[in-house]
Amino acid sequence: MDWQDMLSSSLQQGLGPTAIVYCLAAIGLNVHFGYTGLLNFGQAGFMAVAGYSMASIVTTWGLSLWLGVAVGLLLTVGLALLLGVPTLRLRADYLAIVTIAAAEIIRQVVGSVSLLKYFGGLDGLQAFNAQFAALNPFDKPTGIDGVVMWRPYDFWVVVVGWTLVVISCLIVFLLMRSPWGRVLKSIREDEDAVRSLGKNVYSYKMQSLVIGGLFGALAGFMTALRNAAISPAGFATDVTFFAYAVLLLGGAARVLGPVVGSIIFWFMLTFLDLFFSQATRGADPLIPASIMTTSQASLIRLIFLGLALMLLMIYRPQGIFGDRRELAIDAR
């Protein structure tokens, strides 16, 4: 059992591109769910729209990556409006079902053979990141020696990604301490009360959906840039569920909740994976193959994840560092 390697690999994941993607996605969900009480179960859809816009503008239409980013952001706003118009007047669970359905529609459409020449089917698109890679100032592996180390391109993704996270957190902080943020939080508590005080609840929910969706778009861009490839598999329903787990782990309605949540989530997930994979590998494994094979070992972390999400919601709905008092007041 190579503890040092396990810890450093876990740390690498906890701080790496994947954690960044989920952090950004969860920041968006925090605006939706944590602050406004909107149940968006289709964050993966927002990510897919943005990521695919960026990638296909480059590969399919041969235009600039930055134009792709702009188109991605625009289409994300469009998607938010499209989903918000029919559902934001309805009960919260309708939004949940419509968004989860929309995300699945998007994923299956971009993965379809019919649109293969635009979106590359199940294999997705590659080779769209040249403009981004060209800006990479790092030419050798960077990190902390002996602890974490990234290849030049990965480190560039990490730097850009965490910069986006910092900017996003700052925006969320500024918004949520303002009267605008107060209206969102009030809508979360009781939208009829807010309506009775002369606020256009529908418009605020829409603004929240758009802004949270835009953070989702950033996550989508990072998903695509992370591996310099994009495919429908990266936008499955579980992506949204994982992002919720990240948010709830760090604590909803807290500016830094998604950041803390994402780091811990990916650290733990990687650590569990490595631990069980090492424990089942080799001629005389720690856990005999009759109990657990190597391929079964790879499932343990997801079993833990499901269990953790349940236990978290039952015993610590405020997140691991949250203030129990804030949630205990209300039975919600």
């Binding site: 994947t18 199940l122 997705g124 590659q126 490839a229 990266g234 997930l269 193959a289 790879s298 499932l299």
Partner: peptide, 22 residues
Amino acid sequence: SSGTSAQAAVPGSPASPAAAAQ
């Protein structure tokens, strides 16, 4: 019977690259 092939599919994790085809 345990030991049937199992493949973890963590969406978007770097362990599972580009596409998992049907």
